[in-house]
Design a protein around this nucleic acid. Sequence first.
DNA 1: GTGGTTCGTATGACAACGTCAGATGAACTG
DNA 2: CAGTTCATCTGACGTTGTCATACGAACCAC
Lengths: 189, 189
Amino acid sequence: MTSRVESAAATRRALIEAAAELLDEGGPDAVTLRAVGARAGVSRGAPYGHFPDKEHLLAAVATKSWEAIGEQLDTLVADEHRPPAERLEQALRGLMAVGRGHPHAYGLMFTAPTGEHPDAVAAVSRTHDRFLQLVTDVVGDAERARPIGALLMTSVHGIIAMENNGHLTVEKWNTTGDGLIRALIDRIA
Amino acid sequence: MTSRVESAAATRRALIEAAAELLDEGGPDAVTLRAVGARAGVSRGAPYGHFPDKEHLLAAVATKSWEAIGEQLDTLVADEHRPPAERLEQALRGLMAVGRGHPHAYGLMFTAPTGEHPDAVAAVSRTHDRFLQLVTDVVGDAERARPIGALLMTSVHGIIAMENNGHLTVEKWNTTGDGLIRALIDRIA
DNA sequence: GTGGTTCGTATGACAACGTCAGATGAACTG
DNA sequence: CAGTTCATCTGACGTTGTCATACGAACCAC
C-alpha cells in the first residue's frame, strides 16, 4: 500500500467516497472541497491532483452511483428463475429504493452535465442497456422494448423526483409512489 | 410611483424578474445577489429588504413560474369548445414547452424546498388542482382522476427532466419526448 | 410648514468557498 | 547514492452570501 500509484488511487477513491457520504448526510451544500479533503484524510487542495475541478469530482460520484444501479440490474438480468415481469417490477422498485434512500445522490445522477464527462455517460449508457434488457425479456422484441423502456424509465424517474421534492402528496393525488409504480406496470408493461 | 410602498413593491418585482432572467440566460450559477441587484437597478444588499435570504428570492421566482403555468392551464379549463382529451393533451404539451423553453426555471420549480415557502406551496397546489380539473373532464369522475392525474404529471415531469439532462436520446431509446407524450396519452388517459 | 420617525437602500466588512502557484518531501529511477 | 518525479500541503486571491451600520427621502402628528 506504500506504492505511490496505489496510494494515489486510494486517495482518489477516498475522495469520491467522502464526497458521496457528505452528499448523503448534508446535501449538496455540505459537499465542500475542504470537507471532502478532511474526511478523506487529506487537505483542501488535494482533490486538484485527481480532478480538474469540483464538477469532475461530483461527476465521478454520479458515475459510481450509476454503476451501483447497473450492478443491481445485472443481478436481476441474470436471475432467470423468476418470471421476466417480476424482475422488471423489482428493477423499478429498486430504482425507487435508491431514490428514497439516497435522495441527494439520486438528484446528482440526473444533475451532472453529462456531456462533459465521458465516464459518466458510459456508465449511464450501460445501466440503461441493462434496463432495456429487462424490458426486452418482458415484451419479447428488443426493438419494441426501447420506447416502452423509455416510457417506464422517464415515468419512474418523474415519480421519484416528485416524491423527493414533496410534490407527490397523498392528500393531493390520493396515491403514493408505490401505487404509481403499480399502475405504471399494469398499464404499460 | 414615488410612494414608498409602491416603489418598494416595484423593486421587489424587479428583483424577482431580474433573477428569473439571469436564471434563464446563464443558469443557476449566474444568479448572484450582486448580479440580481445590478440588473434590478439597486445594489447588492437590497434584496435583504425584501427577502430573508437568497433561497426565498428563488422561491419567489419558482412561485411566479408555477403561477404562469397555472394561468396557462386556466385558459385550457375555460376553453369548452374543444374536446376534453384535446385540452388535456394541450396541457401536457404546454408543460413540455415550458421545460424546453426555460429549462433552468423549470428545474428550479422542482428544486426549491417547498416546505419552507408557503406561497410556493400554494401556487403549486393551485396549478395541480387545475391540472386535475382537466383530467377530470376527460375521465368523468373527479376521484378516479386523481391517481390518473398523478401518473400523468409525474411521467411528464420525468420526460422533461430526462430530456433536459440529456438522458433521453433517440439513439438509445428510439423515441423522443413528443413520442413519449403521445404514448402516455394513448395508454393512460 | 416643521420636527421627528420610519424604512428602503447603500456601503463596508467578514467568513467560507473554489481555485491556483509555489513549496515540500517521500517514492521512484539510473 | 544523486537526481527526478509527483502527490500533497500551504498560502493567497477573487467571489459569494450575509450582516451591521449609516444615510436619506417618504411619512406622520401638530
